[in-house]
């Protein structure tokens, strides 16, 4: 296991943290492949940063292919939380813009998990609730 990964396991639930540096060097296909491989192991992933818009749709597409081919796989739950730009001052916005351009979007958090484990994710602008399946 990579030193950068931190895994927490409790009552069968495993959460795998992926720092931005671990996926920043991968191309879209490699990123999605990596994420789906982890999800297929029934782990919940928390990524520092977020996928690009086209990667998110590609993730949905590839997930659907797997729902049709991997027995018992029902799909994923996905949510992204990001700082609200409307609540930032001008200078903070500029700083965030420069940081994103230089090192990518590391301010957001992306949570992805198998639908068999995560029942639902409810998001409103300021919070994210993750509901787990009991069984």
């Amino acid at each position: 296991m990579s030193k950068n990964k931190k895994q927490a396991s409790r009552e069968g639930l495993t959460i795998q943290f992926i720092p931005y540096s671990e996926i920043s060097g991968l191309n879209s296909t490699e990123r999605i492949k990596k994420l789906l491989q982890i999800i297929l192991k029934n782990k919940v992933i928390v990524i520092q940063g977020r996928l690009r818009a086209e990667e998110e749709t590609r993730l949905i597409e590839d997930t659907m292919v797997m729902v049709g081919t991997v027995k018992g796989f029902k799909g994923i739950e996905l949510a992204v939380i990001s700082p609200n730009p409307n609540e930032m001052g001008f200078m903070t916005k500029v700083k965030h813009g420069i940081a994103s351009a230089l090192v990518g979007d590391t301010e957001s958090l992306t949570i992805i998990g198998p639908a068999a484990i995560i029942k639902d994710m409810k998001r409103d602008p300021s919070k994210l609730e993750v509901m787990m399946n009991r069984n």
Binding site: T63, M64, V67, K74, G75, I76, A115
Partner: peptide
């Protein structure tokens, strides 16, 4: 068709 991330 409606887009979803899971189908059960």
């Amino acid at each position: 068709p409606g887009i979803a991330t899971k189908i059960d």
